[in-house]
Design a protein around this nucleic acid. Structure first.
Lengths: 163, 163
DNA sequence: CTGATTGCAAAGAATTTGCACTGCT
DNA sequence: AGCAGTGCAAATTCTTTGCAATCAG
């Protein structure tokens, strides 16, 4: 939800690697950095155009690809709750789990030491060098799962995504 | 990799729920059931056409949607190693982790009691009723991560997907 | 200067949908 | 018989690409 600012800005990361900093990239990076939520390419474009009006959709996709390659952002599916878009967020200090409520569509995040242990175990047991981890969960959030909310209203199906 | 057959066939599952069993569905179910690997919609169509030549692509998608809704299969992305397709597998008795090697493209599976604990913890800590879990990992498999393989050949990038 | 980056427009990949026809149960 | 399921073709959604013009370093 609220994000702890990370040590170096995306801009600094690019510059320090000798990657060209253009006005377009600056606009996209800024939006990603200040985003309070998970953004897809389309909303990213819309917001970045506030900074850089002529910005093209293709440039957004190319910038996303760049940031992914540099492992500065993570790509999420959020259980495909709405369409097949991808969502992006700054790579966090500690990986977290994304939980998508099939009933109300809310996305929750959750971190746990167990998750960190699991990642370590994967490496130890299999020899696999873990670079990117994505753990997504679908189901019913606390509120939607509660049977006490409205006994008269028949419960919507929370077994399966909305669409 | 090799799969332990589950108690009831997909066909029985449908029939017992009063869902219509058509030749087309039978063909798709059979392919999913015997698949030794993760199949996308396209390969699913190709294989199922061996049983049911006229089978249409749309029917495959509709059948996949049905099985997903009934939670008889899981949908995977396999870190989008090749395109944005989805892959499908029978819902296993115990959820497993999918590990995708960015260098050689191999997919490994891994199960761990820690993973089960983590799922339980999610529910306990957040009140979220977990229905579907997808844990995917990207990186370098044991072989590709090994620095001893070929010291002369400069290592390919294993930090990031191939495409 | 000069190659990396961009915009544009078109193409591509994966999936979904409307509708008339077919075939389970 | 009746309605769920299917095929077909077109539409949608999301993303990528080729190429000429532009701009950062």
């Amino acid at each position: 939800m609220s994000s702890v600012p990370q040590r170096r800005s995306l801009l600094d990361e690019l510059a320090s690697r000798g990657i060209r900093v253009t006005a377009q990239r600056r606009a996209v990076l800024e939006v990603i950095q200040e985003a309070g939520e998970h953004l897809d390419a389309d909303s990213l474009l819309a917001r970045a155009r506030a900074h850089e009006p002529g910005l093209n959709r293709a440039t957004v996709y190319r910038t996303i690809a760049l940031l992914k390659k540099l492992r500065l952002i993570d790509e999420l599916d959020l259980m495909h709750l709405e369409g097949e878009k991808h969502y992006y967020e700054l790579k966090p200090e500690r990986d977290h789990i994304h939980m998508a409520c099939f009933r109300c569509g809310r996305i929750e995040e959750f971190t746990s030491p167990l998750f960190e242990h699991l990642k370590i175990e994967i490496g130890k047991q299999t020899g696999f060098a873990v670079r990117v981890v994505r753990l997504e969960v679908g189901g019913a959030c606390r509120v939607c799962a509660s049977p006490a909310i409205d006994p008269l209203k028949s419960q919507e199906d929370a077994e399966t995504p909305l669409r």
